[in-house]
Computed example of a mutant assay.
Amino acid sequence: MNLTIPTMLTLFRIVLIPVLVVVFYLPYGWTNIAAAAIFIFGAMTDWLDGWIARRYGMYSAFGAFLDPVADKLTVAFALLLVVERHDTPWMALLSAVIIGREITISALREWMAQMGAHGLVKVAGLGKLKTIVQMTAISCLLFEENLLGLPVFRIGEWLLAIAAALTLWSGFDYLHAAWPTMRRKG
């Protein structure tokens, strides 16, 4: 296996997950800021690894597999941390929608690939918008504090609700695209 720079960045993003968890639970007043910074840094490396792969043609099958896994792990762990600290039914529901959709679409993609129809279920513009809103929301929720008079946590809650709605919409789009294959018998 040839490790490309994008794949190394993706692996680094996975290594950041336990760092995020440890920093989140440190008994200091600044850990929320550090946790948000770690999450944002991970999101930036996600963008960077994709840009490098496209710009320099550094694609690999392993990287194509690992990148969405790293994304889903990062989002799931960050949402679990947020729900643990802010254990409201609203936060749990929004997080469950997002994590549930990620698991469902991952399973759908794998099944479609086995059916020879993997090209029907691709990331679309709506999915990219969902990701941007979701990453911004989680960053705000991890940060928690007001900034320049802005209620950052409240903004994060609203953005997470928007991300959950976009998650459902894009999930429906994926299922709609896959439906003809899913209906086939045998």
Results as ranks from 00 to 15, higher is better:
residue 177 A to F: 08
residue 87 D to F: 15
residue 70 A to Y: 10
residue 53 A to T: 01
residue 28 Y to H: 14
residue 83 V to W: 09
residue 77 F to W: 11
residue 105 I to A: 06
residue 93 L to R: 14
residue 149 G to P: 06
residue 102 E to A: 12
residue 19 V to I: 15
residue 11 L to I: 15
residue 163 A to P: 02
residue 97 V to E: 04
residue 6 P to C: 02
residue 39 F to E: 02
residue 107 A to Y: 14
residue 171 G to P: 01
residue 12 F to S: 11
residue 7 T to P: 15
residue 37 A to G: 13
residue 11 L to A: 12
residue 185 K to R: 15
residue 129 L to E: 04
residue 112 M to H: 08
residue 54 R to V: 00
residue 102 E to Q: 15
residue 67 D to A: 10
residue 60 S to I: 09
residue 119 G to M: 02
residue 126 L to P: 08
residue 125 G to T: 00
residue 156 G to D: 09
residue 104 T to Q: 15
residue 166 L to N: 02
residue 71 D to H: 05
residue 162 I to C: 02
residue 70 A to L: 08
residue 156 G to H: 10
residue 134 Q to D: 00
residue 104 T to K: 11
residue 12 F to I: 15
residue 174 Y to M: 01
residue 133 V to Q: 05
residue 65 F to P: 03
residue 108 L to E: 10
residue 113 A to P: 05
residue 17 I to C: 07
residue 101 R to Q: 09
residue 173 D to S: 12
residue 102 E to M: 12
residue 127 G to P: 07
residue 119 G to T: 05
residue 164 A to C: 01
residue 14 I to R: 12
residue 105 I to F: 04
residue 176 H to Y: 11
residue 167 T to Y: 03
residue 78 A to I: 09
residue 107 A to D: 07
residue 161 A to S: 11
residue 93 L to W: 14
residue 178 A to T: 05
residue 33 I to A: 15
residue 61 A to M: 11
residue 182 M to W: 15
residue 171 G to E: 01
residue 160 L to K: 04
residue 161 A to R: 07
residue 158 W to D: 10
residue 43 A to H: 08
residue 183 R to A: 15
residue 58 M to K: 13
residue 75 V to L: 04
residue 132 I to D: 03
residue 103 I to M: 14
residue 79 L to Y: 04
residue 168 L to K: 05
residue 5 I to E: 09
residue 127 G to Q: 02
residue 135 M to T: 13
residue 161 A to T: 07
residue 175 L to N: 08
residue 73 L to G: 05
residue 172 F to I: 14
residue 175 L to H: 10
residue 159 L to R: 03
residue 157 E to C: 11
residue 114 Q to N: 13
residue 50 G to Y: 01
residue 162 I to K: 00
residue 37 A to V: 13
residue 94 L to C: 13
residue 153 F to V: 06
residue 178 A to H: 00
residue 88 T to N: 03
residue 90 W to Q: 15
residue 59 Y to V: 11
residue 114 Q to S: 11
residue 100 G to P: 10
residue 107 A to L: 15
residue 103 I to G: 13
residue 90 W to T: 15
residue 183 R to T: 14
residue 35 A to K: 11
residue 78 A to L: 06
residue 185 K to E: 14
